[in-house]
């Protein structure tokens, strides 16, 4: 079980225990569908009954309203540059560096920064969970390494959301 890093003293924490999963992906671009696939499994899973699930093609500024008051946020997406099927978790800190070129394609860090700026609230824990992709070619099915990684990704999410109290 992975241990969540502790949050620093002095940060403004939301009073609620809301848990939010934001899954990015396009179900018509091969392995880019892993985000929506994970979201589907989370919505079906009893272990995730208290998780708000949002599926989007990309991160846009108005998602800040969905992160408002969230205690734990996990961004799920396919990854390039990592071996197909490799599941990775990273802690996300709010940041506007590097500068964002598009307001309709924000990074998780920039979205967190925007949320903090607008609502003066910072989610207590924020992570990305990614799965290495083999192909983003047009198509409505994912590759075998991606599909095989689904259970590991879900186990990781159970750890993250299960520890978040």
């Amino acid at each position: 079980m992975r241990v969540l890093p502790s949050i620093e003293a002095g940060e403004l924490l939301p009073p609620s225990a809301r848990k939010v999963l934001i899954a990015c992906g396009n179900t018509l671009r091969g392995d880019d569908a892993i985000g929506p696939l994970i979201a589907e499994a989370v919505e079906r899973g009893a272990a995730f009954a208290d998780v708000d699930v949002i599926v989007v093609p990309q991160l846009t500024a108005e998602l800040a309203a969905d992160l408002r008051g969230a205690r734990t946020v996990v961004f799920v997406d396919a990854a390039v540059g990592t071996p197909p099927g490799e599941v990775a978790m990273l802690v996300v800190e709010p940041s506007l560096e590097p500068p964002q070129a598009f307001s309709h394609q924000l990074s998780p860090a920039a979205l967190l920064a925007l949320t903090a700026e607008i609502y003066q609230l910072l989610p207590g824990h924020a992570f990305t969970v990614t799965v290495g992709a083999a192909s983003f070619a047009l198509g409505d099915s994912v590759s075998e390494p991606i599909r095989a990684a689904l259970p590991e990704a879900l186990t990781l999410l159970r750890d993250i959301f299960g520890q978040a109290q």
Partner: peptide
């Protein structure tokens, strides 16, 4: 850009995000 608007006029940034939502 939108980040600049939020920094200068956060209430309008909130309104814009809320109306989109």
């Amino acid at each position: 850009h939108i980040f600049g608007v939020v920094a200068a006029r956060p209430e309008l940034g909130r309104a814009g995000v809320a109306l989109r939502r």
